[in-house]
Design a protein around this nucleic acid. Sequence first.
DNA 1: GGGACGGTTCGGCCGCTGCCGAACCGTCCC
DNA 2: GGGACGGTTCGGCAGCGGCCGAACCGTCCC
Lengths: 244, 244
Amino acid sequence: MGGRAARRTGKDVSGKDFTAVGRALAAPARSTMLNLLVDGSSRPASELAHAAGVRPSTASEHLTALADAGLVAVARRGRQRFYRLADVGVADALETLGRLCPPAPVVTLRQSAEAARLARARLCYDHLAGRLGVALTEAMAARGWLGDALVLTDAGQAGLSGAGVDVDAARSSRRPTTRACPDWTERREHLAGALGAAVATRFLGAGWVARRSGTRGLVVTDGGQAALADLWGVAAGTLDDAAA
Amino acid sequence: MGGRAARRTGKDVSGKDFTAVGRALAAPARSTMLNLLVDGSSRPASELAHAAGVRPSTASEHLTALADAGLVAVARRGRQRFYRLADVGVADALETLGRLCPPAPVVTLRQSAEAARLARARLCYDHLAGRLGVALTEAMAARGWLGDALVLTDAGQAGLSGAGVDVDAARSSRRPTTRACPDWTERREHLAGALGAAVATRFLGAGWVARRSGTRGLVVTDGGQAALADLWGVAAGTLDDAAA
DNA sequence: GGGACGGTTCGGCCGCTGCCGAACCGTCCC
DNA sequence: GGGACGGTTCGGCAGCGGCCGAACCGTCCC
């Protein structure tokens, strides 16, 4: 409590240096790559290069830049290198930042069997996405568990606890409790944030969904189908392809 | 629910275009300016130019760029123009982003009477900062109201409600409930986030602090002094200059 | 009106960086 | 071993962007 420290009291303009992260986000190619990775997926450099529309050499430079900025991590698997977001903090930051830059360019890739499976149910970083995520979010909203802007209501607190979701842990997390994830189409959103992660944890723990090997894709188990109808108010068939 | 939409189900790589915001953050001068504004203050272009170490003409270009990116807003007052962050979402995004770029350059400005007043108690965007903010945060932590990483505890829920803070509203906000604001020195943090805002609202509503005209500075009223000692466990004298 | 002042706009310079193709390295597989 | 393949490194080019000084505009004040 000595007076010495008072001498340092200039102005609290210390702050953070945003330039490194800013530079990393500044190039369209890097932005595209990050958008591909923001769902928590891990992808080889070649795929990211193709998606960003640049040569492999250019992509390599971008990816090392992103890694230097601490935004992505790399894992060698065989002769390829898989890139993913460095940690959940990066995903959070990008999600928060995403609200500042609403313009959403749309890139459509050709339909494939795997894409169709992912469209049905998958993990988006650490929460449920795909038609499963959207249907679940809409069912919770319809029941009054989620209010405007997906805010958790008292009814939601009770309902989710009853469904076995650890709501208290989610609420006391440092992360935002609920968040609308813009990952899907421009008009549909699904629940993200700490509560979204808690819901996903419950689904996995209860065996309602299971991970498909090596992908972020999920399969809804028979028990999951029943639970969705009985516990969550999601009608059977809602997840079918035609219902997209 | 027709099948038409299924045709669009390529891959959900729509996402956000981070380039605009990224570009805005990429330059050191702009980063410095934003760091000055992240506490919610409103400052004339000349001050920002001086702080960033660039000529007024250059600063003007930077500020229009920040405004174009939607990060800052401008208000004309007399013959000068005051710049501030566009909205609370920008402050949130910068705060979240700040965790990704820990390196914190330090700029010390010369001590002034006003700076000393601000060091004592001020608003940091929408929550309490300065020695008041730090002391309050530490008192809450000492009482077990805030746990690790300033997470709100059950005791905190009860204690803050008892002190008249609208905890429920803060918890159901879309913003993170609690956050450690790095705005002060590198070693002291104060409570930010939705709960920090709720605490500040309570302090202003109860008349414990009052805004000083036209600044983000606060004066602690006599009633506030009493409330700090009785309700909040902040010993008298803690806010004195020598206690910095 | 006139001068001081704060801020913006304009023109020009320089450095940085994103892009590519070519060459190189390591892994996998025949 | 040899070839295919994924990825990185290197050299070079082109464009963008940050910086400045000078000129211009609007406000304030004498």
